[in-house]
């Protein structure tokens, strides 16, 4: 499969938040300020890339040869949890500035739908190793793109006169609806 098509489709056309609805939880929780959105986005790219590649390797080199495909869900989620702990420890030891900007968001990613979704999707679609690499970068990049755009809109929205019942998350969903219309225009791209 053409890698560029795969990249663009995962990034824009089948955008993980606006088209597949995965990863909505941090989308609402962390998008109040641009700086936290950028930090969360970078942390998510790092974790999804590492965890998905490791999960792919675990599946094809350990589970399939032993005939244990049904253990996929349990093994993937444990691997993701272990990987997040490892990354947090690694960042603590190597770089305080990196810890300040993205290390604090790492514990929030363990039970994130997006990480498990990408790991499972790579297997369900039967991607080769290179396709897995491309998909595992494109999907969280799309996540970060939408998160950053959304954070800039929400910062302005905080100063607007929103009715009481709509303050906070309901008006955020209306913004997401409009963004979904905008992103659906990409469907003719490839």
């Amino acid at each position: 499969m053409n890698l560029l098509t795969l990249f663009l489709s995962a990034l824009l056309i089948n955008n993980v938040i606006l088209s597949k609805f995965i990863g909505m939880c941090p989308f609402l929780g962390v998008s109040n300020k641009l700086s936290s959105a950028v930090g969360m986005g970078l942390a998510v790219i790092f974790v999804i890339f590492g965890a998905s590649v490791l999960s792919w390797a675990l599946y094809y080199y350990a589970l399939v040869p032993l005939g244990l495909e049904y253990m996929k869900l349990i093994c993937f989620i444990l691997l993701i949890a272990a990987f997040v702990q490892f990354v947090q420890m690694f960042i603590k030891k190597t770089s305080p500035s990196l810890y300040k900007s993205l290390g604090i968001y790492l514990p929030l990613i363990t039970t994130n739908c997006a990480v498990l979704y990408v790991a499972l999707d790579n297997i369900t679609q039967g991607y080769t190793f290179v396709e897995t690499l491309v998909n595992s970068i494109a999907v969280p990049a799309g996540f970060m793109l939408v998160l950053v755009i959304f954070a800039t809109i929400r910062e302005r929205l905080a100063a607007a006169d929103v009715p009481d019942a709509w303050k906070g998350n309901p008006i955020a969903f209306v913004v997401a609806a409009i963004m979904a219309i905008a992103f659906s225009a990409f469907s003719g791209l490839v």
Partner: peptide, 10 residues
């Protein structure tokens, strides 16, 4: 569609 989902939820 996706837009409708977001609007209904809102």
């Amino acid at each position: 569609t996706q837009t409708g989902a977001f609007l209904t939820f809102a």
